[in-house]
Design a binder for these strands. Structure first.
Ligand SMILES: NC(=O)c1ccc[n+]([C@@H]2O[C@H](COP(=O)([O-])OP(=O)(O)OC[C@H]3O[C@@H](n4cnc5c(N)ncnc54)[C@H](O)[C@@H]3O)[C@@H](O)[C@H]2O)c1
Ligand SMILES: NC(=O)c1ccc[n+]([C@@H]2O[C@H](COP(=O)([O-])OP(=O)(O)OC[C@H]3O[C@@H](n4cnc5c(N)ncnc54)[C@H](O)[C@@H]3O)[C@@H](O)[C@H]2O)c1
Lengths: 232, 232
DNA sequence: ATGGTCTTGTTACGAAATTAACAGCGTTTG
DNA sequence: CAAACGCTGTTAATTTCGTAACAAGACCAT
């Protein structure tokens, strides 16, 4: 028994899926909120309610983390939060580089400073001379020509691509050359990167069109006996 | 044979999953790009490459749409695009209401006007008196007090919640009272809505933390024989 | 103390989604 | 004209995912 709780090599057993990690990230945020509110313990079904998942899902996810709660009192908020933070920990470092300080870039920059995450947006890059060589929201903005050097020097492991689509691939190449191992891509195209670099794509429009589709569909569900969904 | 191609009641057969609709939305964008570039035909594996999915996945998705390509030439870009647009069509209307014209709201507003989608951001709402009763990016911004009336009057089916977390539930209640059937929620909490209202949550931080986790994990994959991924 | 009532941890099952395989059919080429 | 090739449409298989069910354990009331 007691899987996935070996102190050192935890990440070789039971590799969690992307979905699982997404949920763990949400749990972490919710637990942070609970801690701020002074809540000491939380049940799996309460956490499930907050995260819009099932209680069984929460418990199974906790199994992946390796944290055990006490049967009747539930999970101790602080302990579980600490366990999650350790599980999501990045040995490589918590620094993030933002490329493209436009509308979206600035939004991300601003929201990262107030979001409770170990990740820290350390540096930003842009081509616009009006934006570079100055502090933006407590984050220094370099000209993009210095990207490779700075990212390599500071060993920044993660980059955010928030530039227009035409410049996205070029910027991604620079980030990879600088040695990042993960990229959050906000441009609506597929980035071509070396195999060891992980890429996640973010597209608000896709999310919006999904809402559009299912909004209509859900309303018409009384005339068409689709399977039940939205269980709350 | 020939499933899911009944002209009128298409959406009662083979209900597509959320994942499927997300992919269809991406295909639609990619096909739009191809059309602009003057490309006439596209193969399933080419589209798959662009969308970062498998060719079999593309073909199966096309089956859900009900569009058939020609065996050797592939899919006709314009025809397939039209089929996708018809499939994703919303009989209720294409109007979207944005609530909260702050950093994120403005970003969405600006990017929606240049993104090729049938959805149109018709109206915006905010509490800030400096933002309301004027045009923002070609979109009129009302005070939030008029939300229910305007949304109901214009029968707007979709709302975007881009306000601070503390105001999110309140705003969602107003949207539901106005009669929307779908909400894109950008606040990091679960909205409580009537059962017939579809909600999709968007959280950039979760995406970023996912990148953080798997970035580290992928780089260490040569010492730990995880299953192969990122197949390109 | 002890029985009852809650929880969690874990296993097993069912559903869903992705991948693989193959038959059908234009197109093209010799 | 025939035959081989290449891509699609569809079905089948596999793998992944989520849920349900249940044994074990802590607390509480009596
Ligand atoms: N994922 C989404 O849902 C979503 C939403 C909005 C925007 N976007 C995308 O995000 C990207 C940025 O959008 P935006 O609205 O912030 O655009 P923007 O024009 O406001 O900002 C782009 C910034 O990138 C900078 N830039 C341009 N070329 C550069 C280069 N080669 N190197 C470094 N910096 C460079 C520009 O100077 C500008 O500051 C676009 O690709 C857009 O499609 C995505
Ligand atoms: N999903 C993400 O990844 C992501 C990223 C950034 C921000 N956010 C979230 O989006 C929301 C907005 O972020 P932001 O950076 O744009 O904040 P912001 O403060 O810049 O903008 C909020 C806007 O909402 C308006 N507002 C406040 N209360 C309102 C009310 N009751 N009715 C109508 N309007 C109201 C404010 O006047 C302001 O214009 C926040 O909940 C934030 O957490 C999410």
């Amino acid at each position: 028994m007691m899987v996935s709780s070996n102190p050192a090599g935890k990440r070789c057993v039971n590799p969690p899926s992307e979905r699982t990690v997404e949920r763990l990230s949400r749990y972490r945020y919710l637990l942070h909120e609970l801690k701020v509110e002074g809540v000491g313990y939380v049940f799996s079904h309460a956490l499930a309610e907050m995260a819009a998942v099932s209680a069984a899902q929460v418990r199974q996810d906790m199994m992946a983390v390796g944290y055990s709660g006490t049967p009747v009192q539930g999970y101790e908020v602080e302990k579980l939060l600490a366990a999650l933070e350790e599980f999501l920990e990045v040995p490589e470092g918590k620094d993030v580089a933002l490329v493209g300080v436009g509308n979206l870039g600035l939004t991300i920059l601003k929201s990262l400073v107030e979001y409770p995450t170990p990740l820290r947006l350390s540096v930003a890059f842009d081509v616009d001379w009006r934006l570079v060589n100055r502090q933006v929201q407590g984050c220094w903005c370099y000209p993009v020509e210095q990207l490779v050097a700075v990212v390599r020097e500071r060993q920044i492991p993660i980059g955010i691509v928030a530039v227009p689509p035409k410049a996205a691939q070029e910027v991604a190449d620079l980030l990879c050359e600088g040695g990042v191992s993960g990229i959050l891509n906000c441009a609506p195209l597929r980035l071509r990167v070396p195999e060891h670099v992980y890429v996640s794509n973010l597209n608000i429009m896709v999310a919006l069109e999904k809402v559009s589709y299912f909004a209509h569909r859900n309303r018409a569900r009384m005339e068409c006996p689709a399977r039940e969904r939205m269980k709350a």
